[in-house]
Simulated assay, not measured.
Amino acid sequence: MFFTTPTDGTTLAYEDYGDGPVIVFVAGAMLNTDMWEYQIPFFVERGYRCIALDRRGHGRSDRPRGGYDIDTTADDLAALLEHLDLTEVTLVGHSTGGAEIARYLARHGESRVARVAFVAAILPFLKLTDDNPVGVPEAMLEEMLRRIRADRPKWLSRQSQLYFAEQFGNEVSPEMSDLTYRQCLSTSPWAILKIQEAVFHCDNREALRGITVPALIVHGDADFSAPIDITGRRTAELMPYADYREYPAAGHGLYVTHAERLNADLLEFLKA
C-alpha cells in the first residue's frame, strides 16, 4: 500500500496486517518493512494490527533527492498516522527508527500515541560536543562516509559481520546474514549517506525528557552499531520512569537473535 506525503509529494510504502490495537513499526536505517518478519506475525496472531513503514529511499518507497533529515522522516511518520487516522498507537522503533519516533513526539505531540518502545535505538545524541563529552568525534563519521563512498558493498559486508554479535555466541545462519546484507544493499546509496549523516547530528535529549507516555527501552550490551554506553544506558538515564531492559551479548540485530525474548517483552509492555 502507498500514500503521498503532504510535505513534498513523496510516495511512501507501508504494510498493514491484522486487526486490533495498533502497533506501528519503524525500521532502522538501510532496512525496510521486511526486517520485522519475526515480530509482525507474532503480534497479528495475538490480536494486534501491525503496520510497518518503508522510509523514503528504502524498500518500495520513492527515492527523492531530499528529505533525509530526521525532522522530515519524523514528519513522514506523522503523515502515515494521519493518513490512516490512527490513535492509541504503540510506536516501536529500531535504531534510526527510534530517533525518528522521539523527534515525531517532539514535533507532533502524543495525542495519537499510547506508548513507545525503543529497540537498539540511536538515542539520545551521538555527536561529541562540549555538553556531550561521551559522544563520538565527527572524524569517525567522516571516515565512515568515506568508506561508504569508496566501496559501499564492502562496508555493508563488514557491518553485517558484526551486526548480530555472533562472536558472543549468537547463532545466525549465513543465509540470514546475507538476507540482511541484501536488504541494506537495496537501499538508495544517496539515502544511506544522508541518513547516516542526519542521525549522527540529531540531538534528541530534550525530546526524550519530554516524553510522558509509557516507554520501553531495549538494548544489547554487545551492540557495535549503537554502543550501549553512548545510547541505551544514556537514554534510560534521561527517561528514569521508562522500563529499561538490557540484553547480555545482544547486538544491533537483536530483533532476530533475541526475537523470542524481545517479542515477550513487547507483549508484556503492551498488556501492562
Rank of each mutant, 00 (worst) to 15 (best):
E37A: 14
Y38L: 15
Q39L: 11
P41I: 08
P41Q: 14
P41H: 11
F43V: 03
E45G: 08
E45F: 01
Y48D: 11
R49F: 07
A52I: 05
A52M: 11
D54V: 10
D54I: 14
R56Y: 09
R56C: 09
R56Q: 09
G57I: 09
H58I: 05
G59Y: 10
G59R: 07
R60M: 12
R60T: 09
R60E: 15
S61N: 10
S61L: 04
D62P: 10
D62A: 07
D62K: 05
R63W: 08
R63P: 10
R65V: 07
R65F: 12
G67H: 03
G67Q: 01
D69R: 12
D69N: 15
D71A: 15
D71L: 12
T72N: 08
T72E: 00
T72L: 03
A74F: 01
A74W: 02
D75P: 03
D75S: 14
D75M: 12
D75I: 01
D76T: 02
L77E: 00
A78V: 00
A79Q: 01
H83P: 00
H83R: 13
L84T: 07
L84P: 03
L84C: 09
D85R: 14
T87E: 12
T87A: 14
E88Y: 05
E88M: 09
E88Q: 13
T90A: 13
L91I: 00
V92S: 01
V92A: 08
G93I: 00
H94K: 03
H94R: 03
H94D: 05
T96I: 06
G97E: 04
G97H: 03
G98P: 04
G98S: 07
A99I: 04
A99N: 14
A99F: 10
A102E: 01
R103K: 12
Y104C: 05
A106T: 04
